[in-house]
């Protein structure tokens, strides 16, 4: 494919194939751009952008910039976009943005400016370029990379060195910004245990979710003996996100019916609702630290509760108090 593209770029006018490629991929690139701007979820935006970038890489290739096309894919789509995604993960991948505008007039002004710029640019391009173009056949005669290299290390060598310094500074800066100095000693396990006892927080493992629920999911709260859902049984992260599934009203009588049936089967009298005996009630789970979203979704909530007692859980808790 690269051979054809090279042939295309060598021409002084564009070939039919390139036109087909442009008209196929150009709208796609535009669509990707639109998606980047309009998608409510940042992840979707990032994916749209990645798509646009890949298409642009193809356009670079078509324009005879082979090196840049590859760099575009490797650096931009591969590295930069991945960095974006990492940060998105860090910040919260599932959050959707509201597209409702809060600044009065912002949308209108932005539209006006955008429209104005678009019209002006297109008018400007249409006015300036007069169709004649040289093509890169001569410039790329020794190969695109060699040509770039000879320019980069001769005429632009100073700028090149400076960009090197810039990158170094950026790397150091990013490290500096994200790095946090530990200013106090790590607590030992014993100290943590003592702290928990003194603090009066939940000492035993938290109750497991899904008890009496119809299915055994982590986002379903356990039910107290009287049938009310126990919030504490659901992972704090899910609670924080509002992803706790409600126990349907109908399930409560159903469970009660089941209980009474079981009791009748055993020849006992069914006494509904005295929740005080439950280990769940009275626990002040509200003080429990929120747990990092990436580690929170565990199959077994109990495992997560155990984790919380360890140093690892506390670390995460510190990140998001």
């Amino acid at each position: 494919m690269s051979g054809t593209l090279a042939a295309l770029a060598a021409e002084t006018s564009t070939s039919q194939g390139e036109a087909v490629q442009f008209w196929l991929l150009g709208p796609l690139a535009l669509a990707g751009g639109l998606g980047t701007v309009l998608m409510r979820r940042a992840v979707h935006s990032a994916l749209c952008l990645a798509g646009t970038m890949v298409i642009l890489a193809l356009f670079y290739l078509a324009n005879g910039a082979y090196f840049l096309g590859m760099v575009q894919i490797v650096v931009y789509t591969g590295a930069v976009m991945m960095l974006f995604l990492f940060v998105l993960m860090l910040v919260g991948v599932s959050a959707t943005d509201s597209l409702k505008e809060t600044l009065t007039g912002q949308r209108w002004l932005a539209a006006l400016c955008g429209l104005g710029l678009g019209i002006l640019l297109i008018a400007g391009i249409g006015q300036v370029s007069v169709g004649s173009f040289t093509g890169l056949s001569q410039a790329n005669s020794e190969g695109n990379v060699q040509g770039l290299a000879s320019l980069l290390f001769t005429r632009y060598v100073v700028a090149f060195e400076v960009t090197g310094i810039l990158l170094t500074i950026a790397a150091v800066g990013a490290t500096l910004l994200t790095h946090r100095e530990r200013i106090e000693r790590n607590k030992t396990q014993r100290e943590q245990a003592e702290e928990r006892v003194r603090g009066g927080v939940q000492l035993p493992p938290l109750p497991a979710p899904g008890v009496y629920a119809r299915n055994n999911a982590v986002d379903l709260p356990g039910l107290l003996p009287d049938g009310t859902p126990a919030e504490l049984t659901v992972n704090a992260t899910l609670r924080g996100r509002g992803q706790v599934r409600e126990v349907h009203h109908e399930s409560v009588p159903a469970v009660r019916a089941l209980e009474s049936r079981v009791a009748r089967y055993h020849g006992q009298t069914y006494v509904p609702g005295n929740g005080e005996s439950s280990s769940v009630s009275g626990a002040n789970g509200g003080t429990r630290a929120a747990v990092n979203g990436t580690t929170a979704v565990a199959d077994d909530a109990a495992a997560d509760h155990d984790n919380n007692g360890e140093g690892d859980g506390d670390e995460a808790g510190k990140d998001r108090p």
Partner: peptide, 14 residues
């Protein structure tokens, strides 16, 4: 927006 508007004006002026 202000910066963008300014840029538009500059382009227009050019």
């Amino acid at each position: 927006v202000s910066m963008f508007g300014g840029a538009v004006l500059l382009v227009a002026a050019t």
